[in-house]
């Protein structure tokens, strides 16, 4: 384990609140170990800011193990930074070099308004889920035995892969159109692949896509940036599946 400490220049988006204009500001930070996570680097930076009497930079974070989806950040132009298959909280400073300048911005999209500094409002994602991201089954001690619904392993695995979406919004931030197709298609696919989800499949896809459009997300032009930047590796196949589901539902829905 080496004790190489780095000195970095941080260019950070500062914005007081949703109604104020924001701008990039430059800062220096020292004593950064390569074993720190990116957010621990920001912790160190904020501690220094507080000790100097300045206001720390606000950013969203919670579990710090890549699963809650709370952390975001556009780092050097990429959602969750330069590493692949990780969220910002799992990104480690060993990906950077002493003397680097790092640009840190919030996820940018019309449907993700800035709350403060690097914190954005992603409740548009929740509203899409309210429109149909569920199977209509009430809590009951009398649902059928779980093994009465066998699921082909291949479909079960694909449904699981789609269901691992953490709702962070990196797909939207990566897309030049700020499209939410990967996010929406992950939920549509999970249920479309399972027998339990088939019953409401048509309403689900129509309602979720409608809400996605209402929220002001852009259209998909198949560049695939979302798949590259997705920390959970959600596949573009899901978008194809959603398009099929949508077409089928549009043509056959009475």
């Amino acid at each position: 384990m080496s004790d190489k400490l780095m000195k970095l220049t941080l260019k950070i988006w500062r914005q007081k609140d949703a109604d104020s204009p924001g701008k990039m500001e430059s800062y220096q930070v020292e004593g950064i170990s390569e074993h720190m996570s990116f957010l621990e680097m920001l912790d160190v930076f904020n501690e220094q800011q507080i000790n100097q009497g300045n206001e720390p930079v606000a950013f969203d974070h919670d579990c710090r193990e890549g699963i809650c989806g709370m952390c975001s950040l556009q780092i050097n132009g990429e959602p969750h930074g330069p590493d692949r298959g990780v969220t910002t909280c799992q990104l480690h400073m060993r990906m950077f070099n002493d003397g680097d300048t790092i640009t840190i911005e919030p996820f940018r999209a019309k449907a993700f308004p800035v709350i403060k500094d690097l914190v954005v409002d992603r409740t548009s994602f929740d509203r899409i889920q309210h429109a149909g991201g569920f199977i209509s089954v009430n809590t009951s001690g009398n649902t059928q035995d779980a093994n009465n619904i066998p699921v082909e392993k291949e479909n079960a695995d694909k449904a699981f892969d789609a269901a691992t979406c953490i709702g962070c919004g990196a797909c939207v931030a990566a897309c030049k159109n700020a499209s939410a197709m990967l996010f929406v298609s992950a939920k549509v696919s999970q249920f479309a692949l399972l027998p339990q989800g088939k019953i409401e499949a048509k309403d689900r896809v129509l309602n979720m896509v409608h809400q996605m459009d209402e929220e002001g997300f852009g259209n998909c032009s198949n560049t695939g940036a979302c798949e590259v930047e997705c920390p959970k590796g959600i596949s573009l196949e899901n978008i194809a599946r959603m398009n099929r589901e949508y077409l089928k539902a549009s043509l056959t829905k009475e």
């Binding site: 779980a146 066998p150 392993k153 449904a159 399972l194």
Partner: peptide, 25 residues
């Protein structure tokens, strides 16, 4: 006592638990 119901409930909701090749949990 209620533990078994939880699995039934979650599967009905579409929770994708791991399965064997026969399709069972």
């Amino acid at each position: 006592e209620v533990s078994a119901n939880i699995i039934d409930q979650c599967v009905a909701q579409g929770v994708p638990f791991a399965r064997e090749y026969g399709g069972l949990l």
